[in-house]
Every structure is written in C-alpha cells, then in structure tokens.
Amino acid sequence: MTGRRFIVEADGGSRGNPGPAGYGAVVRDGDTGQIIAEAAEYIGHATNNVAEYKGLIAGLRAAAELDPDARVDVRMDSKLVVEQMSGRWKIKHPDMRPLAAEAATVLPRAQVDYSWIPRERNKDADRLANEAMDAGKAGRQWEPKARPSATAPVTGPTVPADEPLPAPAAPRAGWAAPADLGTPTTFVLLRHGETPLTPEKRFSGSGGSDPALSEKGRWQAERAAEALAARGTVQAVVSSPMLRTRQTAETVAARLGMDVRIEDGLRELDFGAWEGLTFAEAQEQYPDDLTAWLGSAKAKPTGSTESFTTLTHRVGTARDKILARYSGKTVLVVSHVSPIKTLVRLALGAPPDALYRMELSAASLCAVQYYADGNASLRLLNDTSHLR
C-alpha cells in the first residue's frame, strides 16, 4: 500500500425514473479534501439506480487511475448502493448485478470502504450528474469546465472539446438489437492477425518487439475485411496503437472506405521479461512469478508495470470513451487477446479468472452490445468462420 487515501463521492439521477439519466463523481484527496478528479456522463434512458451505480464505477476508476493501491472511502447518498456494495443487502434486481460486479472489479475489496451520507453532503457529485443530464438534453456529452487540479487530470468518458461527438445513429443491420431494447452501441471486437510469434504461442505484449503481421496474418486481415464489408454494419474503426493491430485495422478500414482512430487504452498487457517467451519457457525461468500471476489479477509479469487489474482500469476507460463518442453506432474495435477478453468479461460480469477460460483465435470476431440502461449483451465469441 502507498498510504494514499482518496474519498469518492458519487451520485446519479434520472428525470422520470426511468428517464433521461446521468451520473457524476468526484475524487478528493483524503487528507486535504481537495477535489483532484471529476467524472460525469449522460447515459441516455435509465433508472436512478443504474445511474448511481454508473457514478460509483466512474468514481472508482478515476481513483484507481490516480493510484491503484490507494485506500478509497466511497460516500454516497444511495442507501441501496452502499448496502449492496458493502455486502449487507442482496442484489435482487438483474439490472444491478452486472453493475455491482463491475464496480467490485475496479479495486480490490479490501481497499474500499462504503458509507452513506445525506444528500446535502453530496452536492458536488449531484451537481455533476445534473450537468451531465443538462448536456444530454442539449444533445451533447458533458465536458469539464476546468480541471480541478493543476497536477491531476480530469477523468471520465469525455473527448477533447475540438472533437465533437457524432450524432447517434442506429446500426443498419447484422448485429442489430430488437427494437424494444432501444438502439445499442455495438463493439465488433477483432483480434489482430497472426505475427511470427503467434503460432508459437509466445508472449507478445506492449513491451516487446512490436512485431508486424506475417504473410498469414495479412491474409487473415483481408478475410476479415471481406466479411465485415459484406455485413455492411461497421460505422467506425478504432484500433490499439500496436503495429499488428494497426495493420489489421487499416486493411479493414481501406476496404470500408474509413479512417482508423487510435485508442491507446486498447494496447496489449506489458509482459515484461516474459516478452517473446513461450509459456513453458516463462515457467522454467520465472516459476514463482508465473504462479503468482495466474493466481491473482493484481500480480504482474516479471519486470512489468501492469497487472490484469491495471489493464482492466485502462480498458474500461477506453471502452467508455468509445461509447461516448460513438453512441448508437457499430464500431469495429481492433485489439489483442487480453483487452478483448477483458471487455467480454466485464460485459458478462464475470470474475477475473474468467480470462483463463476463453479461447480467442487470431483474427477472430466477437461482438458486445451496450444499452443505455447500463446492460451489456455478448452477441458473438471467437467467430473464425470467415477464415475457413
């Protein structure tokens, strides 16, 4: 533990319950009480409880980005959220379970305490939630008026002011949802094609040699491009900054007549000293570290600065940025094994060890849909039919 302590105040609201909804959250320095981070978002049509949980998740993520090892005191005026997250009340409503599960993955339970406060002591988070709802009513997303600290960046699912959000538009076909569920945002998740390291199952993360696609990998990217062009549903392409993902994304985007937007949060885990090794080689050279890594989401590969917990924080932030920018659209997200599995795991509300129970082939496709009420639905997993 670092000894740092943060206070997270979070709130959410819905004008109609359900109705137009938004959340707000602030992170305060535990010693001074100064606000050091803010987050807010308009989330569309949702209930108060969904908005409150969304605010909690955003506040925890903001705290985790500042220091993933800090102690966090969560203070909310929602008795329901506080009691459920404290484990004293059962979570009976099916809409709340995946949100509570997601909140529980942001930071280890031992680092977080929950307490109820009256509404008048939660004015800053309430203010941000109302700002977010006002922004949504005006047809835009919330943007920070100013950074709360000169040294701590404002966090939250926002985009720079000079890059306006596109207007929401329904997917045309393919992975579309039933009309009574509303218009979801769909992530079509494409793992990059093979590199020379892929067939040998060598660790290949963001801290290694950054290999290019092999000849087979380029062929796989072409087949994926053909399949996605035939479906005709993709409206934007977002990629990890790694060479193999950019090459895959550019192949598809060229076929679709689109540009590629780079999102750094989609990069692969840094595998440290294991980069380029097979699993057997890593086990032989670093047996204790590998065992610890397989047993805990907080453990890091030898020499790496990242754990699966850290990766979950940045992938979740990247997801929220994409959702904010492309609301109601179908987005091709080109990434790697760990980020894609993490997005699937979070959509299902599954525990961290679920990452070890999924197969994800090179150039395979998955699809996840996100709804305005906070729910997510896994529509496709490890589809390789376009490669046959």
Rank of each mutant, 00 (worst) to 15 (best):
L332R: 08
V331D: 05
P351E: 14
V337Q: 14
V331C: 09
L360S: 04
V333T: 04
P352D: 14
A350N: 05
V331M: 08
L355M: 14
D353R: 06
M358Y: 09
A347I: 13
E359D: 14
S335D: 01
L332Y: 09
I340V: 14
V334S: 05
L332T: 07
L332V: 11
A350L: 14
P352Y: 12
T342Y: 03
H336N: 01
Y356Q: 11
L348R: 13
P339K: 05
T330P: 08
V331H: 05
L355G: 03
S361K: 13
L343A: 05
Y356W: 14
S361E: 14
T330V: 08
P339C: 08
R345Q: 13
S335Q: 01
V333C: 03
E359R: 14
K341L: 11
G349H: 13
A354F: 14
V334D: 05
A354G: 06
R357G: 05
L348Y: 08
A350C: 07
A347P: 12
S335W: 00
L360H: 03
R357I: 00
D353Y: 05
D353F: 06
L332Q: 09
L355K: 04
V344W: 10
H336A: 02
R345F: 03
T342D: 10
L346D: 15
L343W: 01
T330N: 14
S361Q: 13
A350Q: 07
Y356A: 08
Y356T: 06
G349S: 13
V333Y: 01
L332D: 09
D353E: 14
V334G: 04
A354T: 10
K341E: 02
L360T: 01
P351I: 12
Y356V: 00
A347F: 13
L346P: 02
R357L: 10
L360M: 10
D353Q: 11
L346N: 14
H336G: 01
V337S: 13
V331N: 05
H336L: 02
A350Y: 06
M358R: 06
Y356I: 00
A347S: 15
S338T: 13
S361A: 15
P352N: 07
P351L: 11
P351T: 12
L343R: 03
A350V: 07
T330W: 07
I340C: 10
P352A: 10
